[in-house]
């Protein structure tokens, strides 16, 4: 127990100190947290519930746009603002900026939950591959629709006001926003997976038909899980919107094959269906990506595809799954009948 406490304490200290110890890497570290958030939320449905979404990026992009629209709408007319494409002079006071940011994050999260329930109501009747393809389709379509929607800037995207004050302080703020969201999400999931809710979504993953036959409200659980995941992704999107300042619909908001697939790869690499897997995977993947990306000279996307294929084909359980096989006693896994020394009757 004491060991565990020391471990968590060290993590917290590292988390708090990181942006000051490595000041050059503030934005990089923030991105790691973003990856952790999207990987953990992807794993809620993908790993714990057995519903593999390829379209969670929809919530990220929607979160960005909702936050931007809320912030602008508090002060100006959105259509005019985006129509001027940076031509007009639009000032935001500090108060307006932070009010927009706070409200934007909140509304983004709630709006994305709502969207998840609506889309989920249609797509959760779909099992297995249909769900994955359906959600991927939704993400692709959402990007195209938004990039055709002039009111939010069309293909040009939206520019938000810059952080008022020292930009380095801004980077620290964004780091802690991401980190705070990530920690809250982690603790939330740590608790959620020990409740009956967690058991129920695991049951849906293991045998949905049996779960139905036992009278579990499967649709309700599926919708609730996805809505919770969407809430956190939406918030992450909102933070990204302020961090990026200017974003486009296809390149940065609904980036289907960048972040949309990264989150899946992170979860798989770390080990899906575990609490720590997506966290480990996100950190490993981001480090791998940052170290190799620039040396691959255009071949990085090919390498990404190869990484996906290699992970699913050869490294199914991910890092944590691999550890579980090697060191089962670390994880309190249930023993198999033939391994147990039972003196009991059959």
């Amino acid at each position: 127990m004491a060991k565990r406490a020391v471990f968590y304490l060290a993590l917290i200290v590292f988390m708090l100190a990181a942006p000051f110890v490595f000041p050059v890497f503030k934005t990089q570290l923030a991105t790691v947290w973003l990856m952790i958030i999207v990987a953990l939320t992807w794993d809620m449905t993908g790993g714990q519930m057995g519903y593999n979404s390829l379209g969670n990026i929809t919530f990220y992009g929607t979160g960005m746009y909702v936050a931007a629209v809320v912030t602008i709408a508090l002060v100006y007319d959105v259509g005019e603002y985006t129509g001027s494409s940076g031509g007009g002079i639009y000032e935001f006071t500090d108060g307006q900026y932070f009010a927009g940011m706070f409200l934007g994050m909140l509304v983004a999260g709630l709006f994305c939950s709502l969207i998840a329930i609506v889309i989920g109501y249609i797509t959760f009747g779909l099992r297995g591959p249909y769900f994955a393809i359906g959600t991927l389709g939704v993400a692709i379509a959402a990007g195209e629709l938004v990039s055709n929607w002039e009111w939010v800037g069309g293909g040009q995207g939206i520019a938000l006001p810059v952080y008022p004050g020292d930009l380095e302080d801004g980077k620290v703020l964004f780091y802690f926003l991401f980190a705070g969201t990530g920690v809250v999400l982690f603790l939330f999931l740590k608790w959620l997976y020990t409740t009956r809710f967690g058991a129920a979504i695991n049951a849906i993953r293991d045998d949905e038909e049996k779960a139905e036959a036992m009278g579990i409200h499967t649709l309700q659980y599926k919708l609730a899980t996805w809505a919770m995941a969407a809430f956190f992704v939406g918030i992450a999107g909102a933070i990204s919107a302020f961090q990026l300042i200017h974003f486009e619909p296809l390149e940065s908001a609904y980036q289907t094959i960048n972040l949309g697939i990264f989150m899946v790869v992170c979860a798989l690499l770390g080990g899906k269906g575990t609490l720590w897997g997506p966290v480990v995977g996100a950190i490993l993947f981001h480090v791998f990506k940052e170290v190799t990306w620039n040396y691959l000279l255009g071949w990085q996307w090919v390498a990404l595809g190869a990484l996906i294929v290699a992970t699913v084909v050869y490294f199914e359980g991910g890092v944590v799954g691999w550890l579980m096989e090697r060191k089962p006693h670390w994880f309190n896994l249930p023993a198999k009948a033939d391994e147990a020394t039972g003196e009991d009757q059959p």
């Binding site: 959620l192 409740t195 009956r196 129920a200 695991n202 009278g215 309700q220 659980y221 609730a224 249930p334």
Partner: peptide, 24 residues
């Protein structure tokens, strides 16, 4: 899952409200 977990997941959900799902 273990035998006990199999049993616990079989609790009568029809007798539970949605909020009960968040209990242990």
């Amino acid at each position: 899952m273990t035998g006990v977990d199999n049993m616990l997941i079989s609790l009568p959900h029809r007798k539970m409200g949605f909020a009960d799902a968040f209990g242990r």
